[in-house]
Amino acid sequence: MAGTMSAQINKDRIDANTIPLSSILVVDDEKEFIQTLLKRLRRRGLQCEGVFSGEEAISKISAREFDVVLLDMKLPDMDGNSTLVEIKKIRPATRVIILTGHASVNEGLEGIKNGALDYLMKPVEFESLFEKLLTAAGITSCSQSSHVIDTRK
């Protein structure tokens, strides 16, 4: 039984064909962070873009739909929660995951109240972030995704 799994293990990236195309928007003012993250996400077959400010995020989201938005709370132009509210106004169905370097219970609670799906703290292990993104994008259910991650660890 374990043998059947081995075929899937360690074949690097999840084969792009096995994951339906989905789109992720990463909003963060840290350029290096965005670059590394986008590289890793693309390698795993996810379509993604990055922007550095709240304004850019809102105009991107007005222009087209994203499955998941990964949102930093400290942005150069506006704070994360107001960005979140704007995003939800434009596209209520967009799922937003907060990813912040400034841990704060109040900010987190407000985020959840404003409709954020999850509150993550930097730095997050890529595998567990990837798992959350897949779940949020509706590509895998919770149990399936954790199964995928487990066998890949």
Partner: peptide
């Protein structure tokens, strides 16, 4: 503060 400092140092 612990998480924020930890995140900022790692970044």
């Amino acid at each position: 503060d612990l998480y924020t400092t930890s995140a900022s140092i790692q970044q």
